[in-house]
């Protein structure tokens, strides 16, 4: 494995992977800015073979894999060259094509951890009452991280770093609701042009049923309406019927895109 220092180095790695067939496969959806941020943080390593390159992003005690491979056998070969460790990979797609990529991972000791489905709401938003959630201050980010570390499955939903969440708070994209002085729920979003991405929306277990989630969601929707967002997207754990039903209540419907999260634990292979 080799530390990846910058975007140009990544371009050289990708350029070495031949893309002459329709079997080319990748799960790298990060855009340049994101990759440059990861490089700057020293979190990226690469593992290259003749026909594939794996981008390994360090998370909390494991690595997330992004692959670029000429074809599925090349992907399987590269995965077979991974050193011992715990790895996850988000495989996004639909139908049989996704099954084939999963099979390449399964052949190298990976198993399905969970499946996320994307839900989308399309169309303009009407004027609605703001839920009056509070825009978090940067100094509140650490408390939000503590809440998320308690609530999230770290393999399925990355817990943001405090510094990153502080930046989101500074930019007004982190909403919170407090009850008795304690953060009872949070919502993190991103708006780009006419698209909004609901990245995280969580209510503490002991605050459920008290309208905390509704206040957060209505504040988020009001902010989307203010800037005339036309498309809202989110990812939800596919078998979480309760969450899916709540999102449907707010007008989101599954759009067919799935994210199958594969995992290989330390020592589970070889």
């Amino acid at each position: 494995m080799e530390l990846l220092r910058d975007w140009d180095a990544w371009q050289r790695r990708i350029g070495a992977v031949p893309r002459a067939t329709a079997t080319y496969t990748t799960n790298l959806y990060a855009l340049r800015d994101q990759i440059e941020d990861w490089c700057a943080a020293g979190r990226l390593h690469t593992l290259s073979t003749e026909r594939a390159v794996l981008l390994l992003r360090a998370d909390r005690g494991f690595h997330r894999i992004h692959h670029v491979a000429r074809d599925l056998p090349a992907l399987a070969d590269a995965l077979g060259a991974l050193p011992a460790g715990t790895y996850t990979s988000d495989l996004v797609g639909q139908g049989g094509q996704l099954e084939d990529v999963c099979a390449a991972y399964s052949a190298n000791g990976f198993a399905v951890h969970t499946v996320l489905q994307r839900m989308t709401r399309v169309g303009g938003l009407g004027a609605d009452h703001d839920g009056e959630a509070t825009v978090a201050a940067p100094g509140e980010a650490a408390e939000v991280v503590v809440l998320l570390e308690r609530l999230l499955d770290r393999f399925a939903e990355p817990v943001p770093e405090v510094a990153a969440l502080q930046r989101e708070a500074h930019d007004g994209r982190l909403l919170i609701v407090r009850r008795d002085g304690v953060i009872a729920g949070m919502l993190l979003y991103e708006i780009k042009g006419r698209m909004a991405h609901l990245r995280l929306w969580h209510v503490d277990d002991n605050a459920r049923g008290l309208g905390v989630g509704r206040r957060l969601m209505r504040s988020f929707l009001a902010r989307c309406a203010q800037v005339q967002v036309q498309r809202l997207v989110l990812w939800v754990i596919g078998d979480n019927a309760r969450s899916v039903a709540i999102y449907r209540h707010y007008g989101f419907v599954p759009d067919g895109l799935l994210d199958r999260i594969m995992i290989r634990h330390e020592g589970a292979h070889r």
Partner: peptide, 13 residues
């Protein structure tokens, strides 16, 4: 398209 939020990285693929 990206700045205007009409395409995202999944759409690009």
């Amino acid at each position: 398209f990206f700045e205007d939020g009409m395409l995202d990285s999944f759409d690009l693929v």
